[in-house]
Every structure is written in C-alpha cells, then in structure tokens.
Design a protein around this nucleic acid. Structure first.
Lengths: 342, 342
DNA sequence: TTGAAAGCGCTAACAT
DNA sequence: ATGTTAGCGCTTTCAA
C-alpha cells in the first residue's frame, strides 16, 4: 500500500512531473491529448495528492482552524456546521478543535493550529480574560477572527450578535407580560457572552423599573444541570421573582425542568427565557421563548472577514471590524406576552 | 510575521540544524549546555514546528481522521468528544468531518483524509450500502475502524453496541409494562443502526407475541421533526398501538412532543422508548426511557483497535475484530414497568 | 557529541 | 507545450 506520487504517474503517462502537476492542479498550458493521458494514469494508479508536500511547497493548506469552547453545546455545533458550509464554497476545509472550556487547552489548540499552517483561525474564546494572551499571540501570526464570544484587548475582527440589544428585547417582552421582578441565571462572568447579556439585562431592567435583587443573580456554567440547580435554589429560597432570564437555552431548559419538578407553573407563576434558539429550545415543556442567533449569517461574515484579512496580508492591519448583528426574539410558551411586531 | 524555522534557531544558538532537531524532538544525544542554548533560542524566536514539513519527512501526522453522519446529532458529538479524549492520551489529534448524511460528501471527506496522510480513520458510515465503496477504498490505504454504524462487505474492524440485544431489553420492558402491540419509528433502512434495531425489535416482538402491524412501521430520518410527523400519523390514523419504539432519542423526543400536542398521555395511553441516551433524553416530557450507549467505552475500543491496526502494518490483515458491547436500558417516565435488575 | 547533506512530494521559475 | 531543477522545513543517516 505504497502511496502513489506524481513521479509514478509521470512515468506511466510518459511525461515529466511538472506536466503532471500542471494537469492535476489545472494550472498552466497542457495539450488535450497529454491531459487525457495523465488523468488516465492517475486514475489507474489511484493517485491522491500528498497534502503535506503541497502545503510545504505552497505554504498554504486551504484549511481553516476553528476553536470552540464545547462541541457538545448545540449552539456551537450549529455555528460549526455553518462555518464549514461557508468554507466549502471557497474550497477550504475546517479543522475543528474543542477547548473543553479551558483556556489552557485552548492555548494548546491554537498553537497546534499555527503549527499546522492553517490559513486562518476562527475562535470563540472560552474565557473573557484568560484566553487573551493565546488569542493575541495567535493573531500576531495568522489571520484570526473571533466569533460569538470575544476576549478584550486584542485588535482582531469579531462577529456576533448584539447581546445588549437582544437582552433589551427580552426584558421588554417580559415586562409586557407583567414581570416586575426578574432573576438572571448565567455562567461565571468569565466570558463575554455572559458579561454582555447580564449588562444588557441589568440596564434595561433598571430603565423599566424591573426589580433585580443581587441575590437573584446566579452564576455557574452553561449547562442544563446548572439551570436546574439555580432554579431549585430560587424556588426553595422563597421570594421567587416574576421572571428568570437565562444566559442560554441549556440553562433555561434546566430551569423549566426544575420548575416542573417543583410544581411551579411556567409562565403563569414565573416566566422563563433562553438565548441561542438551539433546536431543543422548542422541545422544552413549555417551549422556550428565546433569542434566535443567526448562525448562518454569523458564519458567513466570519469567513468573509477571514478571507479579507488573509488577502490584506499580515503586516498592514487596519482598524479591526466589529460586526454585531441584531438578533430576533422568538416568542413561544415560556413567557406571557404575545409576540409584538416591532 | 515570517515563520521561524529551525535554521534560524540554529543560527541564533550557534549550532547546526541537526542539533536543533535533536533537541526539539528529544531524540539523539546532546550535551546539556547545548540543549539549554537551543531551547533558549527557540523560545526567544517563538519557534513552532512546521507540521507539514515534519509530516512530509516522517510520513506520519499524529492525526486521526473521523467522519460522522451529522455533527448536530448529540449522540455523535458525544462519540467525537470521547474519541478526541482517548486520542489525546496517545498524543494524537483529531480531524473531524461531517458527512451531512450523504455518501458522496462522505466519500470526498474520506479521500481528503487520505490526502492529508492521517495515521488512521474512524468512520460511522452514513449509508448501509452506498458508503461501502469509499469505506473499502479507504481501508485499503489506511488503518480504518468503523464505529456505531457499519457498512457490509468490508473487512475492517468495528465497535458498537449490540442493537439486537438492546432491542430485546426494550421490548421485554415494554411487554412487562403491559404492551401487547407496538409501532416502530426509524430512518429509512439505509444504515446498519436502523436495520439492526428493527430486526431486533421484530424478532423479540414475535417471540413475545407483541403485535407489530406493518402499517405501524414508519421510516423517515433521525430527526425530531420526523418523530413528530410519524407520531401524528399514528395518532390520526386511529388504532394507536400500546407502544412506540423509536430508533433514536431525537425521534422519540418528536414522538412524545406530538403525543403531548394531541393530548395522548405517555406512558398511560402509549409507551415510548428512545435509543442512545443523549443528554436531552432526560429532559423530555415525560423523561425518556432509552438505551444508554457507552460512548466512552466505544471510543476507547475504537482508538485501541486503530492503534493495533497501525502497528500491525498495512499488508497483513488478519480477521477483523467485531466488538459489540451490550448496552443498558435506562428506565425513566415514558414507559410503565419499573426498572428490573437482571 | 556534533555537523554535513540527502531527500520526503510537490510546484514554479526558467529553459527549451 | 513540455522538461529540468531548485527548494519549501524537517529528520536522519553518515562522517568526523
């Protein structure tokens, strides 16, 4: 099972390796007759390019690296799927890495992607500050764009949703449904998503006079388990507010589940909202009102920015782009007010 | 932002490139003093190996490729996560590909992995027969093991669960809960999972005298939507059986949702079972009784087999290993009988 | 213990 | 239109 090289193809077709290369990469002038012979020989031998050799020669791999905090979070897989699709249109492949929500693992992944000579990197940093050094160091070597989450103090491009505007919609909607007090359940404030969402929540709550007791701000991680734990704590602690605003759908799914387990009616006793609009959001009981993240759009913009950064060359880095898309509220059954149009 | 090469490190440390290579790869004898100088120089320059050059030279990439039908199915992400973890223990990385449930895409992915000189491939084939040629062609060139699903007529290793034994447990449990008739909802019989599970279901149903009307066998795809559609069809068609056996949890989640929507009580009017035990299975209303797939174990075995196949060399392929793990039934609230011990 | 040099498979000048 | 050849960055004999 030796690997077939262009030299063997060349020998069989009775031409030089250069000609074979020209035929197979479709560059350079080759007569139709020779082209056919080479193709034939390559097929017969079962030739396949050696990616390593090509990468070494071209210093280009047609591969983009992507690092996400957790591949088991459906929101990130949705993002990954869309990025891969967008990349496919440019003939590039995706090398996916899971950071396990750990900045150290993340740093190793980024280093590994650099070693692999990927053409660019798309990363959603696990941690709001700890991810900084590795992201910056990587951005110094390769085109890099941040997606969804971001880390402060870097000069890279970023694409995501406007969390503050999103939370404004959420709080408005809850308020319209009669909520006069609200809790916030998120992850520890160590990533931009939670930070921004909490800030947006608090700002709008204050503007509308929705009470938000500091004791009703519960921070853990992005998981169903944490949602259940947090909700149980709120319920058992007494003084359950009118609404529970969750930083993502996994948490919200846990919260509604705990409410069901404790016999607390949603949305009649307490309204609940999620964030991301993962597929399972509509499967909750009740189905979750949530913020729909335009994953396809985010992915497409990220790929576009990356291509632009690559074309721009590495030295001249101008002002970095910050693209915040305004997402839509999806009203389902976990809140009381009807959907508004506007 | 030029990449640093060992030549530059060598120059700075005042040694040859050979010595630098020896120090950085930890092979060959180098004096402590020189070792320190080289390390120092490499750090100062921010040296990182060039993976392509190393791969070309060593014809080894320390990378394993994995192809799954769909990265948005939580069962497969769970498998991926575990494979990556197992690989990490051997200092290997994972290159993940999504086949979009399409044998043609799958074939392209496999070819691309071969071109990348991955050290081995782990694949869960999308299609029971159409995936065959590409899988076999790939297996002829590289160590390859099939995971979960498999394609017939190849001589590769395989690891997964014993679907027939699993379905036996499911039917026994439903029967113990009083079911005397059952429907089966799966995907088109174009992959081994559905085939085996359906066969297992039918066999045990016949043994126990559980009625299974051919009109109650509904085949679509592995998705929540299909589960909803299929359940609606069963409910509206009248003659709803005592139980609905689903080929995976996504389908089961759709089925229970449709039952809820149509006011059909689960498990009192109809019992429902899933397969895989994805995280969301316990979040259904009611929580799903399902078969737990031992992902960590499956992943570990796959990695072990792959390493063995690699070590064995490519020519001498003996009998292929077929490892079928017996999974456990997880009893929750969508079925009537209590959990049994044994 | 260290260095010189060949060569992995490919592509792009350059030459014909 | 086609061939010759240098060289991408690394590892590994072989020689010193």
């Amino acid at each position: 099972m030796q690997r077939v090289t262009i030299a063997q193809v060349a020998a069989r077709a009775g031409v030089s390796t250069a000609t074979v290369s020209r035929v197979l990469s479709g560059r350079g002038p080759v007569s139709a007759e020779v082209r056919r012979r080479v193709r034939r020989a390559a097929d017969d031998l079962g030739y396949q390019v050696n990616h390593a050799a090509r990468a070494l020669r071209n210093s280009r791999t047609d591969t983009v690296g992507m690092v996400v905090p957790s591949i088991t979070n459906p929101f990130f897989t949705s993002l990954v799927e869309n990025v891969e699709h967008a990349l496919g249109r440019e003939g590039k492949e995706l090398f996916l890495c899971d950071a396990r929500s750990d900045p150290e693992v993340e740093a190793r992944r980024l280093a590994s992607l650099v070693a692999r000579n990927v053409d660019g990197i798309i990363v959603s940093p696990s941690h709001g500050t700890d991810s900084g050094p590795a992201v910056q160091a990587t951005a110094d070597r390769l085109p890099l764009v941040q997606l969804d989450r971001f880390v402060g103090g870097t000069n890279t491009d970023w694409v995501g949703v406007d969390d503050v505007a999103a939370m404004r919609q959420v709080v408005d909607h809850l308020h319209a449904g009669g909520a006069r007090s609200a809790a916030f359940v998120g992850s520890h404030l160590t990533n931009s998503s939670t930070e921004q969402r909490f800030a947006g929540f608090r700002r709008r709550a204050e503007e509308l006079g929705v009470a938000h007791d500091p004791a009703h701000v519960l921070l853990g991680d992005y998981s169903v388990d944490w949602g259940e734990t947090a909700a149980a704590r709120l319920i058992e602690g007494g003084g359950l507010p009118d609404a529970i605003v969750c930083a993502d759908d996994l948490i919200a799914l846990g919260v509604t589940r705990a409410c069901r387990a404790h016999g607390v009616p949603v949305p009649d006793r307490v309204q609940v909202t999620g964030f991301d609009n993962i597929e399972f959001a509509r499967l909750g009981e009740p189905a979750l009102t949530t913020i729909d993240q335009p994953c396809a759009r985010i992915a497409a913009e990220a790929v576009r920015l990356l291509a632009a950064a690559g074309a721009r060359g590495d030295g001249e880095r101008g002002a970095s782009a910050h693209i915040a898309l305004v997402p839509e509220l999806v009203v389902r059954d976990s809140t009381r007010a009807p959907a508004t149009t506007g």
